[in-house]
Amino acid sequence: MQPDKITIEQLRTGFEKNGYIAEDEITVPVYLALRLEKPILITGAPGVGKTEIAKVLSGVFGTDLIRLQCYEGLDENKALYEWNYQRQLIKIQLIRESASNDAVEQDLFSPGYLLERPLLKAIQAPKKVVLLIDEIDKTDEEFEAFLFEVLSDFQVSIPELGTIKSRHIPMVVLTNNGERELSDGLKRRCVFLYIDFPSVEKEIRIIRVKVPEAGERLAEEVALAMSYMRHSLDLKKKPSISEALDLAHALVLYGAARLEPEWVQKTINLLLKDKEDLDLFNSKVGPAGLVEIVRSEESKRH
């Protein structure tokens, strides 16, 4: 399957085969990014499945995933390429008196001494790869400016080697947790996708796909509990989809058929990882209260 010839339906099926439940809201922007050969910028709360999209894309097209994890202080050397300084030094020490200066210099700046970092790797890849630039908001503005230059031309200039042009434009996925406002320039170059927490129905489907042992009833109760905690409690960190899956897994391991106060008590630390959030949960609703709410919502749905 070719990314630039794919249809929305094929993409949706591909996502489903790779265990990612997605509706038009997600598939259309991803499809457009692939067809228009533009980077896709995905934002949303942590744990809603932003990074997963890149992994799924590499699965759908059977290609490599090259990941650039961003952090404060990340610069071109770590993202694009770097000369292997230590190796060059050793080489100089070894051939100090035996070779001519020109020959040494030419040799020292040959591809053998080049350390390829993720961006260069993606550009030089022999086939179309998925390039995941994770948590772009953690980098500095200067790096962001550099990045959108690379992303517009998909070519880099290495003074000692010349310009390297990409053979295949990679499928670029940028994720953003919203910690910093990204520049308009970068946003303009991308197709934009915001992923929200899923609806109860969608979360039930996700749990059923990822933790099939949980069964229909337990999946529904977990999804209802998640929905209540995300929307009705003023939590510092709302439980993510991955944490909902952790909860479902844990309940299966405990052999629970339904959500009971006892299981909530034992597993609440999988969902709430902040003392203030735990205190808020216990004072406002508590395990028994949560189960009661879930049961009442459940009866309304059936």
Partner: peptide, 8 residues
């Protein structure tokens, strides 16, 4: 929405 709106 994906092509015109870049702020949630």
């Amino acid at each position: 929405q994906a092509t015109l709106v870049k702020n949630h």
